[in-house]
Structure formats: structure tokens, C-alpha cells
Design a protein around this nucleic acid. Sequence first.
DNA 1: ATGGCTGTTATAAACAGA
Length: 257
Amino acid sequence: MKVATYNVNGVNGRLPVLLRWLEQGRPDIVCLQELKAPNEKFPVEAIRAVGYEALWHGQKSWNGVAILSRIGTPIETRRGLPDDPEPMHSRYIEAAVGGVLIGGLYLPNGNPRPGPKFDYKLAWFEALIRHAASLLDSGAPVILAGDYNVMPTELDVYKPERWLEDALFAPEVRAAYARLVAQGWTDALRHLNPGATIYTFWDYFRRAYERNAGLRIDHLLLGPAIAARLKSAGVDRDVRGWEKTSDHAPVWIELMD
DNA sequence: ATGGCTGTTATAAACAGA
């Protein structure tokens, strides 16, 4: 089974890229972030036409998350985090599908730091950490996938020294990510590639993709039962080079059946 | 350090992203 996460940066503007990638990569389950569309403008017909059922939690202009599946209808278990600090933002959706429980998330960017947006990022992170603990306690085979807006370590940034004060790499944020993982999660890409340079995002500016000036901020965290089934993982880096593409690339894992 | 780019939309002397 192949499970992927992809920050599409506008699901309608990106529809040709998304459909091409779905047909080419054939992931079984997909978490999407940054739909940038209200619920009524989610392109469900086009997505169904390439073989996927979908759940989505949209919002006008910003945010928005979805779960797609080609192995059965995803059964929604939650939208929004418990005690979400900003419930009008659509940043979390969770479903049971294909024998797994999967949470798709879009963690706030948090810039500028310091400031209210950074405080909101930390508060959202705390709500996620609490919910993640309850998911592990449930004993369900669980995956938390999405755009975490965190580079976990210096390995995950092309020039760490330039990002020390940024909300994506600040000590408090890295510490929050480390606390989350320490609950018992496996960061799938890093686990299979210790020490490797892996990026999932390249800025639109300054030819960042061509220079490989990237960040690793899209992550798949696996609960113990799923981690034991992890077979392979990767980034569909070439998608970042397509016309009219997102600034993120899709990230995926393969699990033993 | 700054500005560079892209999508969405109150079509901008806009905002937000990372």
C-alpha cells in the first residue's frame, strides 16, 4: 500500500498537475494540503474520474485539507483538532481507510516570529501533540501526514544558519516536533535515510529548485504498528519541475500488506 | 539582508505563503 502527502498550493489552479501525478504515481491514499478553496469548489468530479474517493475540509482562499483514496471510501473520524486554537482554519482531517487511521494536517507557518502568528503555531502544535497522544493510546494503526512547516534538524535545511530565527526552524518549533516524535512516532523518510539530504519544498524565488536550495517540511509520522510495515519511502522530486507546479513535491511511503 | 514568485480574490497601493 502506498500512502502520500502533497501540499498542492491551490487544488484548482493545480488540478492538471495533481491529476497527472495521481495517474502516474497511483498512490492508494493521499493527504492534500493548501486546497485554497471553499468546500463547494473542491474538484471532486475530476478526482473521481481518475479513480479516487475524497473527503475534504475546505476554506475560502487559504488552508484546506483533504484525504483521497482509491482503495475504498474514507470514513471520516474527525475534522479539526480537539481544542483547536483557531477553529475557522481548515487544517486537520482524519479518516479510517484501507485498514489504517490517517490524519492529514497543515500546521501553521508561524511567521513572523515573534508575534501572534508564531504563538498560534505553537498553540496549534500543542493541540496536535495532545491529539497524537490519544491516537497512540487508542492502539489504532495510525499515520499523521502533512505539511508540518518544521525542518526537524539541520540536515533538513540547505543553509541552516540562515533559518535559525525563522518560524520553521526556531528552537521552540524543533523542540515541539521532537516531543511529538518522542511519543513513539517514526519519521518515515528520515528513518529509512539517516544522514541523507532530502527536501520536499523549494521556494519559487531565486531558482531554488535548480539550485536544490530546499527544505524538508512535509512528513509522514507512523505509529508503531505501521512503522513495522514500512518498506520504502521517497519524494517525487520531478513533480516540482513540472509546469504550473506547487512549491512542494509529493512525499510517499510504501507499506507491506 | 533583501527581493524574488504564485495563488486566491475586495483584481490591489491586497494578503499569505515559507
